[in-house]
Amino acid sequence: MTTSAHLLFELQQLEQDIAEKEEKLRQVQKALRGSRKLAKAQRDFEEAEVAYVQARQRQRELEDELSQVEAKIRQEEERLYNGSVRNPKELSAIQEEVNHLKERQNHLSNEVLQALEAAERAKQVRDEAATALRAAEADWQKRRAKLQKAEEKLTRYLAVMQKKVSQLRATINAADIERYEYLKARKGLPVVAPLQDEVCGLCGVAVSQQKIIAVQRGDLVQCGNCDRILVRATRNTSQHKRA
């Protein structure tokens, strides 16, 4: 005989299943908001790109300065040797300036070489970061496709289960539904417990013979200890099998 308690137990199973699937759906939807691995790969690439651009800019600045110094050396050496300047004091000053410029040229040449090496290292890091980013993007595309399928499947499943809940609720006495909802609000699920070997299947406390008889008769009876609704144990209630 299917009693109100059995119907409520079935309703509970459906609602527990729905709650479980809704939590899974929330997790899937959270995962769909983005990949931490991809976000990190994007940050790494952006940082590497900025570092490379800065290294190349520094290299160009030093190369430009070196070019200017070399042009100035040529200009001053031409003045030194073309005979346009005859004053010994002025010639000495030009020679001193050329010597100073050549020292600066040597220093800049070393700096340009170091900057070139730094730019090459930065480019290598940028290229490696770009490769890692492409791999992360490919992985995310595959994972997102799976997540989207899971989302669609869970959404369809929940729609079917919600329909079952609505249909089942329509077959249960309104007063029994009210009691079920009251207990659910107080205790949360589960609120229906199978009666197993004369004890409550949730709290394990023995149930009086009077209540056992009432349960077997199909009355809606609550456990004297945990206040859950008691249902006569069947294969389904004993195994807590999902609907």
Score class of each variant (00 low, 15 high):
Arg86Leu: 02
Leu91Asp: 01
Leu91Gly: 02
Ser92Asp: 15
Ile94Thr: 05
Gln95Asn: 07
Glu96Thr: 14
Glu97Arg: 12
Val98Asn: 00
Asn99Glu: 13
Lys102Met: 07
Lys102Gln: 12
Arg104Lys: 14
Asn106Ile: 05
His107Leu: 10
Leu108Phe: 13
Asn110Thr: 10
Asn110Ala: 06
Glu111Asp: 12
Ala115Glu: 07
Glu120His: 13
Lys123Ser: 03
Arg126Tyr: 13
Asp127Gly: 01
Glu128Cys: 00
Ala130Thr: 01
Leu133Asp: 03
Leu133Glu: 05
Leu133Ile: 05
Arg134Cys: 00
Arg134Asn: 14
Ala135Ser: 06
Ala135Lys: 13
Ala135Thr: 10
Ala136Ile: 03
Ala136Glu: 02
Trp140Gly: 04
Arg144Leu: 00
Gln148Cys: 01
Gln148Tyr: 01
Ala150Cys: 00
Ala150Arg: 12
Glu152His: 11
Leu154Ile: 02
Tyr157Ser: 11
Leu158Lys: 00
Leu158Asp: 05
Ala159Trp: 08
Val160Ser: 09
Val160Gln: 14
Val160Phe: 14
Lys163Gln: 15
Lys164Gln: 15
Val165Cys: 10
Ser166Gly: 12
Gln167Val: 05
Leu168Ala: 05
Arg169Tyr: 08
Ala170Ile: 00
Ile172Trp: 03
Ile172His: 00
Ala174Val: 03
Ala174Tyr: 04
Glu178Leu: 09
Arg179Trp: 03
Arg179Phe: 06
Arg179Met: 07
Arg179Thr: 02
Glu181Asp: 11
Ala185Glu: 13
Lys187Ser: 13
Gly188Tyr: 15
Gly188Ala: 12
Leu189Val: 03
Asp197Pro: 06
Glu198Asp: 11
Val199Lys: 13
Cys200Glu: 01
Leu202Ser: 07
Val205His: 15
Ala206Tyr: 14
Val207Ile: 15
Val207Trp: 06
Ser208Thr: 13
Ser208Ala: 12
Gln209Cys: 02
Lys211Met: 07
Lys211Trp: 11
Ile213Met: 09
Ile213Asn: 10
Ala214Phe: 10
Ala214Met: 14
Gln216Cys: 08
Gln216Asp: 02
Arg217Val: 05
Asp219Lys: 10
